[in-house]
């Protein structure tokens, strides 16, 4: 249904400017995408606030939910710089966010959502010269929610700022720095059955858990590809 109005959940002209995939392939990816780019966030907005709003578009009874949130960080200071990625388990949830959440307020700012090709290693960092987002390089206005234009911060936000500045000081780069969020349910009993060939003693437990672990860790890695 969309002859009379344009649906809000169509991909916009937003794109990852550094993506190397061609337009056709990008469109294919977007038509299945479970990831959203969220922009115009306050630097002080936490992942939990984002979770609270975006979980309203989740469909857990359909196998969905929020898989993970990746906070966009200033490359140099490791502090939030006003964007993030929200990844769901299903495409329908990402579309619902486009229709119902994009253009509404979070933490008293109107946020925008765009379908994204999917998180890739390194994309959590700002690409501006000074480490933050490019748009904040050129911004002329005073925006307290995005660091103002100097060190002035509103009184109430001083405490929040301190927490924010410390929160991601431990942020890592490289493979495995960002959690996967947990994949599909997997049968665990298969492993156990193999272990039952002889009588089990407590000592066996270690081996078994290690087998399970390797398998699941591989899965997590595979997801990151």
């Amino acid at each position: 249904m969309a002859h009379v109005v344009t649906p809000l959940d169509q991909p916009s002209n937003y794109k990852d400017s550094q993506s190397r995939v061609d337009r056709q392939r990008q469109n294919d990816l977007l038509s299945k995408s479970t990831t959203l780019y969220i922009g115009n966030l306050s630097f002080y907005t936490t992942e939990e606030q984002i979770y609270e709003l975006f979980t309203k578009c989740g469909s857990p009874d359909d196998g969905g939910g929020i898989k993970r949130i990746i906070m966009g960080l200033d490359r140099n200071t490791r502090t939030p710089c006003g964007f993030c990625f929200v990844e769901y388990y299903t495409h329908a949830e990402a579309l619902a966010s486009m229709r119902y959440v994009s253009g509404t307020k979070l933490d008293e700012r109107i946020i925008r959502c765009d379908l994204d090709l999917g998180y890739k290693e390194g994309r959590q960092f700002g690409r501006g010269k000074s480490g933050g987002q490019v748009r904040d390089e050129h911004r002329q206005d005073y925006d307290p929610g995005r660091g103002g234009w100097g060190a002035q911060a509103q009184r109430l936000e001083i405490e929040r700022r301190r927490e924010v500045e410390e929160r991601y000081a431990d942020a890592q780069e490289g493979p495995g720095a960002v959690a996967g969020g947990g994949g599909d349910w997997k049968e665990a009993e298969g492993v156990q059955a193999e272990g039952k060939k002889r009588g089990r003693s407590p000592e066996d437990e270690g081996d078994n858990t290690r087998m399970v672990r390797t398998r699941l860790d591989e899965d997590i890695e595979a997801e990151r590809m």
Partner: peptide, 29 residues
């Protein structure tokens, strides 16, 4: 510290959590 930190902590220590969930050495698997 954050939802992401939680995910990282859980993912890094899944074997530990599984061990705890099974009641440690007295596990029934």
């Amino acid at each position: 510290r954050s939802f992401s930190h939680l995910l990282n902590a859980i993912e890094r220590y899944l074997p530990l959590l599984r061990n705890l969930a099974s009641g440690g050495a007295s596990s029934t698997g």
